[in-house]
Write a protein that binds this DNA or RNA. Sequence first.
DNA 1: ACATTAAGTGATT
DNA 2: AATCACTTAATGT
Length: 212
Amino acid sequence: MTDIASLFPLLNEPELLQEIEEVGSMIEFKEGEDIITTGKYIKRVPLLVKGAIRVLRNDGDGHEVFLYFVNRGQTCAVSLACCVNHKKSNIRAVAETDCMFISIPIEYLEKWNKKYQSWRNFMLITYQSRFDEVMMALDSIAFLKLDERLLRYIEGKARVHGENYINITHQKIAEELNTSREVVSRLLKKAEEEGEVELSRNKITIPGMLPI
DNA sequence: ACATTAAGTGATT
DNA sequence: AATCACTTAATGT
């Protein structure tokens, strides 16, 4: 099994790690598969071991707006929140890359909360850092100009793929940012003239970014 | 060579 | 910034 301790350094109690090994099951998703869909009750918490997850929010008009990426060594706070409150999911999570996570049944959350100090701490830190990310996502939608939001999206996507480019169409980006394809094309063209990106069909490269 | 899909662009609101 | 209408470019068959 994967080395949980090194991926989740906050979980440092040997007993807890052993319990995770015992009750958690390793689950894999292929790129593009739905992990959580809107309206479903979430019955497991994902500790992401490999790959990345893309989290989208339904805007009510049937459009889905990109929120943020979850990277390995993280868990998704929104699913945590839904989980502990037994609420239906108001988000959709898609496998951004092939990914693998340890799935923890929800009944252990409370148990471990009482039992393990490091688990409490992990939950706290998770909530804190994810709350910050959601706030940033909100800020970027509410206050950032679209060109900055666009570049941020591309960079974030490139980062979770560990590359300095992404493979996507302008149309898909427009859908994720809830704008039109023409606007994306024009902003990208401008960004290209300023040397911030390089464009080709189905591909956007960020020259100033090193592959990890 | 042709059809299809992606991207670029001017004009209008 | 959104939409429309149209053009041009790239790619698949």
